[in-house]
Design a protein around this nucleic acid. Structure first.
Lengths: 154, 154
DNA sequence: TCCAATTAGTGGCATATGCCACTTTTGCCG
DNA sequence: CGGCAAAAGTGGCATATGCCACTAATTGGA
């Protein structure tokens, strides 16, 4: 057991996941560097792009991220003019989001850089392996994990 | 292709990874909640625990995280008295880290909570699947990804 | 119709991470 | 031995994320 601490570093699924995320994140960030976008921003712009003027809550749900976190993350993108928001016509509580022309252009630019990193990665691990990994990650992300908390006895 | 945008959300390995990390992170964070530690802090304390008074750079390398980021993340733990640092005897540039008795105790407390989440997770996906996933993630994390940047021609 | 519960966001506060510019130590070499 | 490049951290600045307490709009009854 002289190597009990050698592996990734622990048996914690979460820690292992975060570690990989930091590593891969750095790689994609570097690739996107020239565009001035972080990989997270790129992902967010992309998600908005493929959606139809989604409501913030819809985006947050799709990306499994906290609604307020999404709001914060959106700020720099709005400030830089890549994204704009507007109230839903039927429900004024809802705020919808869309890319500005400038945002679409920036996304196009970033997509070119992203594809290089993506290809680079898939060459290393193999497209099929990558697809399997993504599938596994999606499965994990969508797991209905719930602490065995006291079932609301009432 | 009516579902081109339905899956996780994109083919980006990085985005998929981050999404899963947010999801799983929330789960482990909830589990660790009672201890007052975040899953990231738990992971950091654990890493320090299994190491032998590691230098900051050593920890950063093991966790594949930026050295300065580690420094920042360490602050609240130092502030709360779970960790302490001291200069290396031979190289005064090096700062070593160790858990305080209080930190060891807190880690023990957190370990109990963590194991519940860990078990819960492995019950859902299967211990073997989880192990495979961790292996895959470690492999990804340790990949020597490098932008095909101009190879230093010299 | 009017109020209680629910839904969608916002703002504030705190941690997580990175990059960059410095400062302090070392290590190395002429 | 003196000075320069490399190594290890620190601090500042900016984004990423979460939780919580609130506010504004809606919805669902009584």
């Amino acid at each position: 057991m002289t190597e009990a601490q050698k592996p990734g570093f622990s048996d914690c699924n979460n820690a292992t996941l975060r570690r990989a995320a930091r590593s891969l994140g750095r790689f994609y960030d570097d690739a996107l560097g020239p565009s001035g976008l972080k990989s997270t921003q790129f992902g967010l712009l992309f998600q908005i792009h493929i959606s139809d003027e989604p409501a913030m809550g819809t985006i947050a749900e799709a990306l499994i991220m906290d609604l307020s976190a999404l709001g914060h993350t959106l700020k720099p993108l709005i400030r830089d003019g890549y994204v704009e928001t507007f109230a839903d016509k039927d429900d004024r509580r809802v705020k919808r989001v869309r890319l500005t022309p400038r945002g679409e252009a920036k996304l196009d630019e970033a997509l070119k850089l992203w594809s290089v990193a993506q290809r680079q990665f898939e060459e290393k691990v193999g497209a099929e392996q990558a697809a399997k990994l993504r599938a596994a990650l999606d499965a994990v992300a969508d797991l209905d994990l719930e602490m065995p908390m006291a079932a609301p006895s009432n």
